[in-house]
């Protein structure tokens, strides 16, 4: 493969697209994201259809703490910016800067997860359990699925950082970093829908 010519320190500008395998990975990942949008679409559909079925539980207008959500949103938006900086460092072949930005991204992601866990604990404490009502079940399923995606992304990017330390930046490792960045932005875009549809619209009632 022509890609092997690049393995000796001379990476092309976009190393993630240098080999056919890399290009296929990026394209296949977009196909996966198409499937992911269907997944989240069905969860949003379920939530929207059931959000008024609160049974004995509290409605969103009383439950949601917007300050926590605002902080979580800020963390995730910032992590999207740092993740794009990592991709830019990848294009400049600046491995050190790339790894640093990836670490910042992971830390912000962990901060987001911490806030979400704290938030869920509070809700359960206030009697908003998974089985309380159709509203609570669809809420935890939708927001929890997003949280699980963030957790997966944190683990994934952490492993990628370890692999970069071991193998360095090559035409083999570059597509992985690039694709993880795209994944992270996608998770951020899903969160934009969640804070708008679930929290803000839920607070308005």
């Amino acid at each position: 493969m022509s890609g092997h010519a690049h393995l000796d320190n001379k990476l092309p500008h976009q190393p993630e697209l240098a080999t056919l395998e890399g290009r296929n990975k990026v394209l296949g990942f977009w196909l996966f994201l198409g499937g992911e949008s269907v997944l989240f679409g069905t969860l949003f559909a379920t939530f929207l259809a059931l959000r008024d079925q609160i049974a004995d539980g509290k409605p969103g207008t009383e439950l949601f703490q917007l300050s926590t959500v605002a902080l979580a949103t800020f963390l995730l938006l910032t992590s999207s910016l740092t993740s794009v900086f990592a991709t830019q460092a990848l294009h400049r072949h600046n491995v050190k800067s790339m790894v640093n930005w990836l670490i910042v991204t992971v830390v912000l992601g962990l901060g987001f997860l911490g806030l979400e866990i704290y938030e869920f604990f509070e809700y359960v404490h206030e009697g908003h359990k998974f089985s309380t009502s159709a509203f609570s079940s669809s809420f935890y399923t939708l927001v929890g699925f997003h949280g699980a995606h963030v957790a997966f992304g944190v683990v994934w990017i952490t492993i990628l950082i370890a692999q970069i330390f071991k193998k360095g930046l090559t035409v083999v490792t570059a597509p992985k970093i690039y694709v993880a960045g795209i994944y992270w932005h996608f998770i951020d875009v899903v969160w934009v829908f969640i804070f708008t549809v679930v929290y803000l619209m839920g607070k308005v009632g």
């Binding site: 977009w30 994201l33 679409g41 559909a45």
Partner: peptide
């Protein structure tokens, strides 16, 4: 172009799901 087709294809199905579920329930 392909990413746009994939993502918007997914989003279109997702949107249809939402409209369907809301119509079905209401």
């Amino acid at each position: 172009l392909m990413p746009i087709i994939f993502l918007f294809g997914g989003a279109l199905i997702a949107f249809t799901c939402i409209v369907m579920a809301l119509y079905w329930v209401w």
